[in-house]
Design a protein around this nucleic acid. Sequence first.
DNA 1: TTGACAATTCAACAAGCGATGAATTTAAAT
DNA 2: ATTTAAATTCATCGCTTGTTGAATTGTCAA
Lengths: 234, 234
Amino acid sequence: MATSDNKTAENRPTGKVGRPRSDDREKTERGERILNAAEELFALHGYDGVTLRTLANAAGVDVALINYYFGPKQQLFDTVFQRRAKILNQERLSALEQAKSEAAPEAVTVEKIIEAFLRPLEVAQESQDEGWRNYCALLAYVNNSAVWGPLLMSKHYNDLVDVFVEALRHALPGSKDEDIYWCYHYMSGAMSLTFANTGRIDRMSHGLCRSDDFQAAYDRMIPFIAAGFRRVCG
Amino acid sequence: MATSDNKTAENRPTGKVGRPRSDDREKTERGERILNAAEELFALHGYDGVTLRTLANAAGVDVALINYYFGPKQQLFDTVFQRRAKILNQERLSALEQAKSEAAPEAVTVEKIIEAFLRPLEVAQESQDEGWRNYCALLAYVNNSAVWGPLLMSKHYNDLVDVFVEALRHALPGSKDEDIYWCYHYMSGAMSLTFANTGRIDRMSHGLCRSDDFQAAYDRMIPFIAAGFRRVCG
DNA sequence: TTGACAATTCAACAAGCGATGAATTTAAAT
DNA sequence: ATTTAAATTCATCGCTTGTTGAATTGTCAA
């Protein structure tokens, strides 16, 4: 199931060898175009489902340029995954800080914590930048993979977990850490699948619900998860 | 990230050409060995991460035999996925029927419905047959894939969804179908990741929780999900 | 103006890919 | 006994894979 080559890609390599004139550079830099195309293709087909040639074609770039910019394939994958992880972590952390200061001196509620965790993803998906939608699918792929998950999720998201779990501890006094971690895990799974946008719910609900209706997904998800936390960790 | 070839596989091809003597047949038939190995490898590396040669080696058969038994690669994948889907569907349906008859004439509770949905998976994973553990990871892979999900999940699991949603409708009178489907989707995501057994929770909880502690995962998951349903669909 | 460096294409590499036709051996049916 | 069919290995096909070295063209500082 390797991706089709799509010879009629919008961005083609110039065909001329050597460094290009600085005046006819494309609006999006080539390095960034590679990352964007990689993000989309990896999200859809997984690491092994994408060949460097397909990727090069989609990005409108020569194959060799990928290695020039990002080194071997595995390193490219890590770079793609890392790029938005940083941003997402910042967004979530600042959302949590804001919730804390709004609630002070009271402890912030479970609902608000979960909102701080989920809203940045919803905002990202709702945004113009379609790269975020691709990244969410990539996140679902990595999160559910026994090969990549242990490597990349731990590397780029473990610190964030600590902060949110600490907040949840205060919101749910008397709860056991073990319970919190398990609930966090359920939240992570529900979120992954939901924002992976696979079109599954559309078919399963006979068209009643729509995968790309992030508002609908989001509105229900916060109370759903929060109620779960309260029941198990209460 | 193609799988390593593992030349020292336990089951080797005999090396002798032609149909084997019926008295020195292996205890597990070759066709079944192929399916088992495929299940394990596809679950770990995804469709494109597994080559027929790696698979043949793991199953201890010649490459050509895979095609002989199961046709092209895609068809093999479908067969692997289908095999246990049938069984799982039966188990879940009969668990639901039993819950219904136990509750009669009252309507069965949300908790019991979710238990009927989850317990068969837990029993499967807890069983001796390690193939079930692999299948759960495969289910997570397919469920979260935008390529395979729409094809295989709908094909093999949509009927089951209808039955369970119908039961949930009665357990949650006055609820909107849209709400039920979204909650069902959250449940599906939480379940996928949890039973995919990626080792993620082990690292995230600094060793406090263990991925393979299915009992722990299961005990908390039912109240978690049920509380979510009640809050959103109540 | 020269020389170092950056950015790009091209061509090739060895290895590996899925698939299949032919040959071979045995089992089962007649 | 013969024939037919099933189960297996082997060799090979044409293509694709990730990676790299060499050549080319442009920029920019000395």
